[in-house]
Design a protein around this nucleic acid. Structure first.
Length: 254
DNA sequence: ATGGTGGCGCGGCCA
């Protein structure tokens, strides 16, 4: 089973790239973030023609998450439990025997921002939900744009980034809490080296110079981690014309 | 050079 995640930074702009990528890689599940698409405008028909069912929760201009799946997704949830947050950042569904939780974690903007406090509170809510999720769904994958580089080796220049948003100690502690509850960063099951990134700023030719961060993750419950054969970051679409600033990440499970 | 690029939507916000 192939499960992938991709922050597309506008599905309207990136639809041809997503269809192209799906056609080549044929994942069983693709989680999208930053669709920036209202539900009534979601291009479900286009994905249907490519053999994918779609589940989605979106809003105009910002946020928005979706799941594309070859088998129909069911038991949909579109928010953190008990949350009345209007920002569309969560989509959970069951596909086959796997529970999939697609997240678009808030960016946080800067450490002195209200958005940073919102990010940490959002992560605390996710952490509070996770124990229950793992209890109910031993085959759980939590994936998406976490907007956190977990360790210095996930950052192109750790000294330059030190203390900034996406790498701060509080964000990393929140990410670590997800792992401590029983999730595994599937990328690190197979690759220990630095220099592997999933996001590169549009500015300053960051991709060409590989000045990136690894902030898109596929986290697996113990049962799924034991079945994981590999997780890779596909840099190819980042080099296409008019790319997303994020690369897709894919994991393979037996 | 507190810049740079991109998306949304048409001014300013967000990443």
């Amino acid at each position: 089973m192939k499960i992938a995640t991709w922050n597309v930074n506008s599905l309207r702009v990136r639809l041809p790239q997503v269809l192209r990528w799906l056609d080549v890689h044929r994942p069983d599940v693709l989680a999208l973030q930053e669709t920036k698409t209202e539900d009534r405008d979601f291009p479900a028909d286009e994905f249907q023609r490519s053999g994918y069912h779609a589940a989605f929760t979106g809003q105009p201009a910002y946020n928005g998450v979706a799941l594309l799946a070859r088998d129909p997704p069911h038991e949909l949830l579109t928010a953190l439990p008990g949350s009345d947050d209007p920002q569309r950042r969560v989509l959970a569904a069951t596909v086959g025997e796997v529970r999939v939780l697609n997240v678009y974690v808030p960016n946080g903007q800067s450490l002195d921002s209200d958005k940073y406090r919102y990010k940490l509170e959002w992560l605390a809510q996710l952490n509070r939900w996770l124990g229950e999720l793992l209890h109910h769904y031993p085959r759980l994958v939590v994936l998406g744009d976490f907007n956190i580089a977990p360790e210095d080796r996930d950052v192109h220049d750790a000294e330059m980034w030190r203390g900034q948003v996406l790498v701060s100690a509080a964000e990393r502690a929140a990410f670590r809490s997800l792992l401590d509850q029983g999730l595994t960063d599937s990328f690190r099951l197979f690759e220990q080296a630095g220099g592997h990134y999933s996001w590169w700023d549009y500015r300053a030719a960051a991709f060409r110079r590989n000045l990136g961060l690894r902030i898109d993750h596929i986290l697996l419950s113990a049962e799924l981690a034991a079945r994981c054969h590999g997780t890779r970051i596909d840099r190819e679409p980042r080099a296409w014309e008019r790319p997303s600033d994020h690369a897709p990440v894919t994991t393979e499970l037996s």
